[in-house]
């Protein structure tokens, strides 16, 4: 491990970068794959925030991440119904 940083910080950075690349270039190129890949950087960011010991930030981030997923699912369903 790199000295001076918590292991959560390093791991979170790796997960965040890899997940962002996976969101940018999804393998079957549709909205559903992109939405599932969007969960990976969310948990990477959660690991990153874990290394700062802020309980309230973690709670808020988890709740907002799920709410935004719900909104994205509704948007995708509306878009597919219109198309």
């Amino acid at each position: 491990m790199i000295a001076g940083y918590a292991p959560e910080f390093i791991l979170g950075l790796v997960v965040l970068v890899a997940g962002t690349i996976a969101v940018a270039f999804p393998q079957p190129k549709n909205y559903l794959t992109r939405l599932i890949n969007l969960e990976i950087p969310a948990f990477g960011l959660l690991l990153l925030m874990l290394s700062y010991n802020e309980a309230l930030a973690l709670l808020t981030f988890g709740a907002i991440s799920v709410l935004s997923t719900f909104i994205y699912v509704r948007v995708i369903q509306k878009k597919e119904a219109a198309a």
Partner: peptide, 28 residues
């Protein structure tokens, strides 16, 4: 990692919230 830092309340809330995200994706 969360439990090791002693943040048990965050662990409880996240354990109950995270499956909801999967259920919402399964709707799609």
């Amino acid at each position: 990692f969360i439990v090791d830092r002693g943040l048990l309340d965050v662990a409880i809330a996240l354990a109950l919230i995270a499956p909801l995200s999967t259920v919402f994706i399964l709707m799609a």
